[in-house]
């Protein structure tokens, strides 16, 4: 993982394939159009923040990236490959479940409600995917899981069940679980929204540490402080479209669009 990352940082910026590329992405639930043409690009190694009011489609867009939601229009690429489809000539073929699962291996996801597996201990949660999906042997997987728990500061909680952990601890285990698959891209869906204010800091520290290690991250968040400090790009979404984008410091301190201004005046 580390040599892959350092390689990424060495390559010149102009001809790299974007990690995520969206072109006119549309998504509807029934008659409700949630995404009305999203265009954006996430560069490798970048921390990309998505902000906006609830119902603006930012979480839906995030879920489209690893095909938890099917898009209805436009094109979505991860690391240069179409998400959920294969193009042959001018025809699109839906991918089989097995092929979709293959692609998801490389994309880690952290959920608002943690979604740890409650019938497994912290370390078993982290080991599960490497053992079941990649076929790593249990001893190696456990060793690696312990290293990851150490990294998120929870090595001493390895034998605890999720119900015995605080929300902040659960979310850190969830981050370790996603990292266990050595993803090239990490998706965060409001990772701190379900936490007590006191516990938010620990989770953000882990994410900051991850960003410093060069991980490509797409973060849906309401933590403007985090976005400003750690983010490399920021997009403000509303009503299923991208309203404004740029460097977080510029957008947050000097918003150009009226809608962005009114949103930020309420949350800052």
């Amino acid at each position: 993982m580390t040599d892959k990352l350092s390689k990424k940082q060495d390559t010149p910026a102009q001809d790299v394939v974007p990690m995520v590329k969206a072109q006119g992405v549309h998504k509807s639930f029934g008659h409700v159009e949630v995404l009305k043409g999203i265009d954006l690009e996430v560069k490798p190694g970048e921390v990309f923040c998505l902000i906006g009011p609830s119902g603006s489609g930012k979480s839906t867009f995030l879920r489209c990236i690893n095909h938890l939601e099917k898009i209805n229009g436009g094109r979505l690429y991860v690391d240069g490959e179409l998400v959920g489809y294969r193009q042959q000539g001018d025809k699109l073929y839906e991918l089989r479940d097995r092929e979709v699962a293959m692609k998801r291996r490389d994309i880690g996801m952290v959920f608002q409600r943690f979604n740890l597996f409650p019938h497994m201990t912290a370390v078993e949660n982290v080991m599960e995917a490497p053992v079941q999906v990649k076929g790593v042997n249990r001893t190696q997987a456990r060793e690696r899981a312990m290293q990851l728990l150490e990294r998120v500061g929870l090595a001493d909680r390895a034998g605890h069940y999720p119900s015995q952990l605080s929300g902040g601890q659960q979310q850190r285990v969830a981050i370790a679980r996603a990292l266990a698959m050595d993803p090239k891209l990490m998706l965060f869906d409001e990772p701190t929204s379900a936490l007590d204010p006191e516990l938010v800091g620990d989770v953000l520290d882990v994410m900051r540490d991850l960003a410093e290690s060069g991980m490509t991250m797409v973060v849906v968040t309401h933590e403007m402080g985090f976005a400003r400090e750690v983010g490399d790009s920021l997009v403000f979404m509303d009503g299923g479209v991208v309203v404004e984008s740029g460097h977080p410091r510029d957008v947050l301190t000097n918003p150009q669009h009226e809608r962005t201004q009114s949103f930020l005046s309420k949350v800052l």
Partner: peptide, 20 residues
Amino acid sequence: GQTEAAHALGMSHGKTLRRI
């Protein structure tokens, strides 16, 4: 959310059903 988390980790439908 359990199924989603398992799918997001790259687990197949069968494995998700059996293990999770």
